[in-house]
Write a protein that binds this DNA or RNA. Structure first.
Lengths: 184, 184
DNA sequence: CGGCGCATGTAACTTGTTACATGATTCC
DNA sequence: GGAATCATGTAACAAGTTACATGCGCCG
């Protein structure tokens, strides 16, 4: 079982979904700390189904396009619970930007400032989105029963992105007023 | 050219190193935002050498074990500079823990508290190490000319890990006193 | 009727990890 | 002499991305 499998099981534990919908949900909800591609999702759905952890259901109701909708099975729910209980094994952060900062004595400070500015803008964007989600969720009282968990996840995003922005503002200053540091 | 190639070129731009030493340096200096395995480093060294970006040199001086030492070539230095100037393309964060928090309404709160505690302890450790580095680097005045850049990288680590810890303390409280939230 | 968004899927590729094989050297 | 560490390397595998093929349905 891959991590992708558990992401899928988790999302299906809330409601039945199609592969396409799963991809969209991951892109929206998990954007700042996770990603999945179609190339991972569809094969995973296939194998989950073969192992009886999910089932294909008829898309009832509205006349939908050709869309396969899946729901989680009891076995699937058990597998999900077991995974949730196991200690977290993977955590990865890879920031090319920090590599460039580390070696930045080899390039012009303006170039680095441009890198930093892109980083800053992109995380300002992320932060803004997270704050919107946060406000939205706090607005409606207890619609979903996992709402408080979701708030914890969003709060992580907010705190970390604020730290990113703090750092990038300082670092931008460092590159722009570089002379103050090097010339004394 | 893979990212691994540039990491190697960057480190070799400071001083000649062997594959094993490169691995150790990455583990120590880049630990909190990057990693490389032997399976990436050795093949990369081979191809960098074939393309003339690095050269094998004689391990002069001390009677060393069988160790191949490499130094960067002019072409290598140019390639490194060009990469440093190109916009950052990759940035990835994958936190299984947040996935589990998101779906944590399906498991016991004690289980989640245990996950959180492990996360917290591991990042306390990282933070401590970073603060030691920081103090050490600030102690000696201008030994390396890229020292200020390195301090910027360390500062990133400190800020982000502090944010992690802030969040994990809050979240731990949330799971431990869960009743306050759900029962009202 | 053309383009866009919805929708599923696969193949090729790149990237990254793990396990293993091998052997030298140092330290106790 | 045996364990730990230094050191290089490969093979197999796992994970992840990208590009592509295909086709439906809706809207202007």
């Amino acid at each position: 079982m891959r991590q992708t499998d558990y992401v899928i099981l988790g999302l299906l534990s809330e409601s039945p979904l199609s592969g396409y919908q799963i991809k969209k949900l991951v892109d929206v909800r998990f954007k700042f700390f996770w990603s999945e591609s179609f190339g991972q999702i569809f094969p995973a759905l296939k194998s989950l189904r073969e192992n009886g952890l999910i089932e294909e259901i008829e898309s009832v109701g509205v006349l939908r396009r050709s869309r396969k909708t899946y729901r989680i099975s009891n076995d699937g729910l058990n597998a999900l619970r077991q995974w949730l209980e196991r200690p977290v094994e993977r955590e990865s952060l890879r920031l090319e930007l920090l590599l460039k900062v580390y070696f930045s004595n080899l390039v012009d400070e303006d170039v680095m400032a441009a890198h930093l500015l892109r980083f800053q803008r992109s995380h300002e964007q992320v932060l803004e989105t997270l704050k919107l989600f946060d406000a939205e969720l706090k607005g409606l009282i207890n619609t979903h029963d996992n709402q408080p968990n979701v708030l914890r996840v969003i709060d992580f995003g907010i705190k970390v992105n604020e730290a990113y922005l703090d750092w990038s503002r300082e670092t931008l200053r460092f590159y722009k007023e570089g002379d103050l540091y090097t010339v004394r």
